[in-house]
Every structure is written in structure tokens, then in C-alpha cells.
Design a protein around this nucleic acid. Structure first.
Lengths: 192, 192
DNA sequence: AATATATAGTTCATCATTGAACATAATGAT
DNA sequence: ATCATTATGTTCAATGATGAACTATATATT
């Protein structure tokens, strides 16, 4: 059975036929590069590999952030909340969920812990009784600044491999991609 | 209490003093941009913003992947395993964990489910009785190809916002950053 | 040969995240 | 005024991921 796997950059369809197993005593070990009519697999394609590189760096940064935040007794999701609330005091839980690209229920699980630790306050909105608005306590702000310092160090350490022009190009590319994926033109104060 | 938050690109230290709360009736709403001696916050810095853009795109791609894989009854972590085992048949669980940048215990939780579904086989190594080697079944390979098609569509859709040169530059940047973070020069068959 | 150290994979408890379902409130249509 | 629809946040069950502790095995040291 053949699949049309993808079109190459030259708009040429690549068809992959299920590879025939080979290997010692027919043990099922398969050489993926021996597939069908064209040997091209996604990892042979530049765009795919470029995205895998992005994904790997993202995983490395998350690990570095987790390690850097551990001495502050702060997990990455909690820090994300604190940083966003520091930057946009008074935002709603729905707004925060949109910015963090997580579900509302996740925040309903995470926020009580930050409240309990005395870092965040949730207050009812003056007009809409469904809404709660988020602000940091003074202790929350202090901790957030310390955690921001950690994040800046991770990002600066990472970006040291790039020139300023390269770093700016990276940001331009990613913002453009982000807006493209969201399907609308860039807006002020967009989460991207 | 002041913090040295970070050094700017001109190597100038930025000091942030805790912002003074303001807002209606002293309700604790804080304007982060009114901090201390210099108003620069991380989100005012290009490198920080550039990384946030990368992180946002990564989150969007993960959502798109999850949505695209749902009709195949496949979750993203399971797909990651299948794709890596397809590409490197016979690899060990330890090797797979390294490539996926997750812990060995995570794979011990995920792999039995793929085994139960008849997608993956775990076989003892011929020489080292601690080791199990991973291969896909024929059904696993078929499903993996279908899932690869989904991933390629997501990546192609994303990269449509970039020219070929921009996409290649992006990959170059990220590979360099990845190697920089791992602290060693690029190697053949590196996870980055 | 005996012992110490390192490695591969598993189990465990804990936490983050998801998506469905729910309760309450606001808005829009009639 | 009433009803339908949408929005906000919470609860629930299920699942993915982590890091410590464990078992079994391999390797290095003495």
C-alpha cells in the first residue's frame, strides 16, 4: 500500500511504499531509507529538520529553566503565570489562559497553590461577576523578579551563539510564522 | 530592595526596583514599566521577545499536531516514540529517552501501551541482558507513515510563511544554539 | 575472585495538562 | 419579560512527565 507522504519543495509528490523488513534472521529491523520509489523521508527534508532543531532547543531551554527555577522552589508553569500577571496586572483567568496557550481548567488547578503561597491574589471583577482578576502580592513580585533574572540568564546564554542580527532574524521569522498559524495579521499586544 | 536583573546587549546593568503599586484606591494594580532606575523589563529586550516568539510557535505547533493526530487515535508522545523508532530501528530505551529528551521512567510508562496496541516490539538485546531494543510492527510502520504525513503537513503549513532561505537560516540558528547549549561541537547523528 | 561503581529499565508518588461536564452569569434575540 | 446562546471559572477523570528509589546486570578496581 502506497502513501502520498508529502510534496517536496519542488512540488513533486513523494510516494513511500512500506519498506520491506530485512536484517539478521528477518527480525523485523527495517531500514527506513530503503522505502519505495523515492527514498526521501521527512527527516531528509530541510524544513522538517529545521523544525526538529527548533523543537530540540525548546526542550533544552525548558530543562535549563526548570533547573534554574528549582532553587526558588518554583516550577515552570507557576513561573509562567507569575511573569504574565506581573506584566499584565489585573488580567482575567481566561485572558491568562489565552496568553499561556493552556486550558482554563489548568489555571484553576495551578492558581490556588500560588494563592496559598501568598504570591497571587484573585479578586472579583467590579462589573462581571463571572470574572476574577489576577494581581501579584509584593512577595509575588519579588519572587517574579528573581525568576525573571533566571529566565534572562537562560535566554542570554542560549542567544550567545547568535549574532544580534541573527537573533533578530530568528524573532522576525517566528513572529511571522506565529501570525501565519493564527491566521490573522500581527496585532499590537498579541500573545506572539 | 534592588536586583541586578540582567545586562543589556551593551553590557549595561539594568537595575529594577520593586515598582510602587498604583491604581484605583491602591488596589494593588502595578504598572511594571514604572520600575526603578531603568524601565527596561525582559519583555522590552529583543532577545527575550525573540525567544518568547519561538516558545509561542512551539506551543501552536504542538496543538496543531495534537489536533492532526487525534483522528489516528495517537497522542503526541506516542507519535514521537513511533517516529524515532521508525527512523532508528533497534535503538534502546535509554537511547530513545536521550533523543526525545525525556526520562527513562516516562518511556517505561508509555511503551507498554504501544506494545499492547501492537505497534511496537521490545526485544532483549543479544549481548547485554539489561537492554531492550525497540522495533515497529508492520502495523506500527503503517500508522507511523500516516502520522508522519500529518506532521509534514503541519510543518509545511507553518513554514509557508518563510522563504526557503529564511527557513534554512532558522535551522542553522537553532542547530548552532542547540550545540552551544549542549556544550559540544556538532556531531554526526546528533539529536539536534 | 571479590568488591565497588555504573548502567538499563521499572515502580512509585506527585504534579501538570487535557477535555468533558457542570454551575453561574452575561448577552442577544424574540 | 422571556428564552436561547455564549462566556467564565470549577470539578472530574484520565494521561503524560518528573525524580527518587529500586532490581538486575555489566564493568572497573583491587
Amino acid at each position: 500500500m502506497n502513501y502520498i507522504l508529502f510534496k517536496s519543495e519542488q512540488n513533486q509528490e513523494t510516494i513511500v511504499q512500506e519498506a520491506i523488513p530485512k536484517g539478521p534472521a528477518g527480525e523485523g529491523v527495517v531500514d527506513g531509507s530503503q522505502a519505495g520509489q523515492t527514498a526521501l523521508m521527512p527527516w531528509d527534508m530541510p524544513r522538517y529538520r529545521n523544525w526538529i532543531a527548533v523543537a530540540k532547543v525548546h526542550a533544552l531551554v525548558e530543562k535549563a529553566m526548570a533547573a534554574g527555577l528549582a532553587p526558588l522552589a518554583l516550577k515552570l508553569p507557576h513561573y509562567d503565570i507569575l511573569a504574565n500577571v506581573y506584566r499584565f496586572p489585573g488580567l482575567t483567568q481566561q485572558d491568562l489562559a489565552n496568553r499561556m496557550l493552556v486550558g482554563r481548567s489548568n489555571l484553576s488547578m495551578l492558581l490556588p497553590e500560588l494563592e496559598r503561597r501568598g504570591l497571587v491574589k484573585r479578586t472579583p471583577d467590579g462589573e462581571d461577576r463571572r470574572v476574577r482578576r489576577l494581581t501579584l502580592t509584593s512577595e509575588g513580585r519579588v519572587l517574579t523578579l528573581r525568576a525573571l533574572k533566571v529566565q534572562v540568564e537562560v535566554i542570554e546564554g542560549m542567544m550567545a551563539a547568535l549574532s544580534a542580527a541573527e537573533c533578530e532574524a530568528l524573532g522576525d521569522f517566528m513572529r511571522r510564522v506565529g501570525h501565519h498559524m493564527l491566521g490573522h495579521p500581527p496585532a499590537p499586544d498579541s500573545p506572539i
